[in-house]
Computed example of a mutant assay.
Amino acid sequence: MIRNREVRLLLLVMGSISLLAVVFAFLLPAGAAPFIVLALALLLISAVLVFTYWRYQKLETLSGYVRRISAGDISLDVRDNEEGELSILKNEIYKVTSMLAEERSGLKQDKTALMDAISDISHQLKTPVTSMVIMADLLSGPNLTEEKRREFTRNISVQLERIEWLVSSLLKLSKIDAGSIQFKQEPVSLQELIATSLEPLAIPMEIKEQELNVSGEESASFSGDLNWTSEALINILKNCVEHTPSGGVITIKAAENPLYSEIVIQDTGSGIPKEDLPYIFQRFYKGRQASEDSVGIGLALAHKIITSQQGSIDVRSEPGEGTIFRIAFYKRVV
């Protein structure tokens, strides 16, 4: 309390008044003592009232600040560098205001991201849904040939599978963004991870007669979630298979060192234009060489899964010379 400048000033004033009263008591006749006591009391009461009024004015000012902040004026700066509880209170109010400003900015960004996501989703769903509505109308036509009927039915089935994959991927991304997924921290063999990820792509690679080369340390492993990491690797490998021509080569290497475990995936495909490289992990981004069926979400999901497990992924590519994806899972420091 003594560190408070206002309290020190009040004590100084009261002490000075008391000291003057003592001096006058010795200098003036004995009969003047009642008047000295009365004057001392009045002066002390006046000093306390002035101090209390001043304190209430300061508190009223702070109340005004709080009302302005609650009304949305979070840019208000009430800090000061004086000592005392009022200055401490001002600084605490400023800290709370800064926290509110950060939360408000974060909520605004989340709202913008949600609006963008809804817009992107509606855009991605609009095309296949419209296509299916048209084909469904055509299927009801009495003069439709059996060949066309089978073609339209097959197209509707393809579009439904595309929508199912899109919705499933978006749900996975949303769960990761919301932090509702707890990734396991278990030893995962890189060879097992690669083998699991290649299973769904065996037929597409066989159809395109692509050559697959897998090499690396059999003992290489990392601490993570096998199923989710396999999901990420499938999306990356699927991208390589789609952009590598028939007869092309896909090479996968696994390695481990004291700092990290890594998987390097290289293809002999068409490559990625330099202007597209910074954006290929963004949601719904479609490069200039993307296929018509691409929705631009597979690599974004892969990036999110890997980085959520203390990993990193980068890409190097040259048009006409293929693409190299490098995935690294860093060791935890104990």
Rank of each mutant, 00 (worst) to 15 (best):
S18F: 15
V167W: 03
E206T: 09
N227W: 09
F222G: 01
Y285D: 07
I36Q: 10
L44K: 05
A71Y: 00
A178K: 10
D116R: 15
V241G: 00
S16Q: 08
L190Y: 00
G296V: 06
E209R: 15
K238D: 00
M135R: 15
L198F: 02
M1E: 00
L100R: 09
D110L: 14
K175L: 10
K274W: 05
L299W: 04
Y285Q: 07
S122C: 07
V334N: 15
L9F: 01
V167F: 03
L28T: 10
S16Y: 12
T323L: 11
N227V: 13
P142Q: 09
T127W: 14
A220R: 03
D276P: 08
G287F: 01
L11G: 01
K126P: 02
A101Y: 07
V214G: 08
V7H: 06
M1P: 02
Y260M: 11
F284L: 09
E275S: 14
V241L: 02
S197A: 15
E209S: 13
S270G: 09
R150E: 09
Q109P: 00
T97D: 04
L212Q: 11
E217G: 03
A32H: 10
E151T: 05
F281L: 04
G224V: 03
I181A: 05
I327W: 02
V48W: 07
P319G: 05
A290I: 02
I236A: 02
N4Y: 01
I252A: 07
Y279N: 13
M14V: 15
L76E: 04
L144Q: 06
I2A: 10
T229Y: 00
S122R: 14
Y279C: 04
R149F: 04
M14W: 08
N143S: 13
L20H: 07
F24P: 00
D177I: 05
W165I: 10
G106D: 13
I36H: 08
L212S: 07
L20A: 15
R316D: 12
K126E: 14
G216D: 11
T61D: 11
I280A: 00
L43A: 14
L44R: 03
A25L: 10
L27C: 03
A302M: 02
I17S: 04
E102A: 13
K238C: 03
T52Y: 11
P128W: 14
D77W: 02
Y330E: 08
P187V: 01
F51C: 01
Y330K: 13
R288L: 08
I265E: 00
L233F: 03
Q282A: 06
M1C: 01
E242A: 14
I250Y: 11
S189C: 07
D225H: 09
E103G: 07
D267Y: 09
G216T: 14
A33N: 13
L28W: 14
L10M: 04
V66W: 02
S105T: 12
E6Q: 11
L233E: 01
L49W: 04
S219T: 14
I272E: 12
Y285C: 10
E103I: 11
T61Y: 13
R154W: 04
D225W: 06
I74C: 08
A39G: 11
N239M: 01
I280E: 05
G72K: 08
L100H: 07
S189M: 05
L38Q: 10
L86S: 06
A25T: 15
M14Y: 04
T61A: 12
V66D: 02
N81W: 11
S140D: 10
L299A: 06
I121E: 10
N227S: 14
V23F: 06
R55V: 03
Y260K: 15
G320Y: 11
Q124W: 00
